[in-house]
């Protein structure tokens, strides 16, 4: 091992030098032209539904959905104005945000201690609980959501944002626990032991030592749980009616309607996704780094 390590740098340098002599320099460049083109086309295809929707909603209504499609037009924001004035979009957006924020906060508050305990306790019970969490993550939604529909009506909490938020906490809890547990597993146990020798209890070790170290992990888990709640369609469609309808449900009901409403649905989709896309661009560093240090060890 030691010999390899000490020899490696010189060997690599030598190899690179020979490679440069042997291979024509254009080979690497040719690779990157092909790879760059491939990545460019991939990005374009990944963005195409989004770009096309953005175009459709900024077209004047009479040419928005004609066949063959129009490519040159005077952009207008009328669909956004109509969306704001003729529908309860603002209310639905507020509902969506309330659901997402409540469920993220609760998911983290109950998920962090559980994940910590699971990461620090080897043995059958932990393994069993983690497996159960894994199975719960894979459950068909309807197996839990249809009974929730009836239970929420019996309890009189049907069509409320907090009932939906709590339902989503439970549904996303398995994922939250797994992700956080893997982050905790990365932190050396010596730190716990040192803190406890210094007189910390388990709880204060978690609060004062672990949670500050878990910043990126908690942020990553928080972003994911927020996104899941923000995006949820099925659960929201079943547990809400009019009062606490969320934007994805609103957009879906608009889809079956006539043209101006369809355009408004597109406008709603844009308004909903532009902020999250912003978040994605800003948070991507955390997402990748977070996943690199935690999630993949599952």
């Amino acid at each position: 091992m030691t010999t390899t390590q000490s020899v490696t740098p010189t060997l690599t340098e030598g190899l690179q030098a020979t490679q440069q002599v042997r291979r024509p320099p254009s080979r690497r460049r040719r690779f990157w032209i092909v790879a760059g083109l491939f990545l460019f086309i991939t990005c374009l295809m990944m963005l195409s539904p989004f770009i096309w929707t953005a175009m459709s909603v900024t077209k004047p209504t009479n040419v928005a959905f004609v066949n063959p499609p129009v490519f040159v037009y005077t952009p207008t924001l009328q669909a956004f104005v109509d969306l704001w004035q003729t529908t309860y979009f603002a209310q639905y957006l507020v509902n969506t945000l309330i659901v997402a924020v409540i469920s993220t906060v609760i998911a983290l508050i109950i998920g962090i201690p559980a994940a910590y305990a699971l990461a620090r306790t080897p043995g059958y019970i932990s393994a069993l609980l983690l497996i159960l969490a894994l199975i719960f993550r894979a459950l068909p939604r309807f197996a839990v959501v249809l009974p929730m529909y009836e239970i929420s009506q019996q309890l009189g909490i049907y069509d409320t944002t907090y009932a939906l938020a709590i339902a989503l906490v439970a549904i996303n809890q398995p994922f939250t626990i797994w992700l956080l547990r893997n982050f905790f597993a990365e932190i050396p146990v010596d730190l716990d032991e040192a803190a406890m020798i210094d007189g910390c209890t388990r709880i204060s070790t978690l609060r004062k030592v672990m949670i500050p170290l878990m910043g990126p992990g908690i942020l990553t888990a928080g972003i994911f749980v927020f996104l899941f709640a923000f995006q949820e369609y099925l659960t929201a469609a079943i547990l809400t009616d009019t009062a606490s309808k969320t934007v994805p449900v609103f957009i879906t009901t608009q889809l079956g309607q006539t043209l101006p409403m369809l355009q408004q649905a597109g406008a709603a989709a844009m308004l909903l996704t532009l902020p999250v896309i912003g978040i994605a661009f800003v948070a991507q560093k955390y997402l990748v780094a977070g996943l690199a240090s935690g999630a993949v060890k599952g």
Partner: peptide
């Protein structure tokens, strides 16, 4: 960042946008 866009879109909304690419009725 570009690659993440389709992931942060709600599935049903993304699929609606996707369907508009292919729907002759909507050009």
């Amino acid at each position: 960042g570009i690659m993440l866009v389709s992931y942060v879109l709600p599935n049903v909304v993304g699929a609606a946008a996707f369907s508009w690419l292919f729907d002759t009725n909507f050009g």
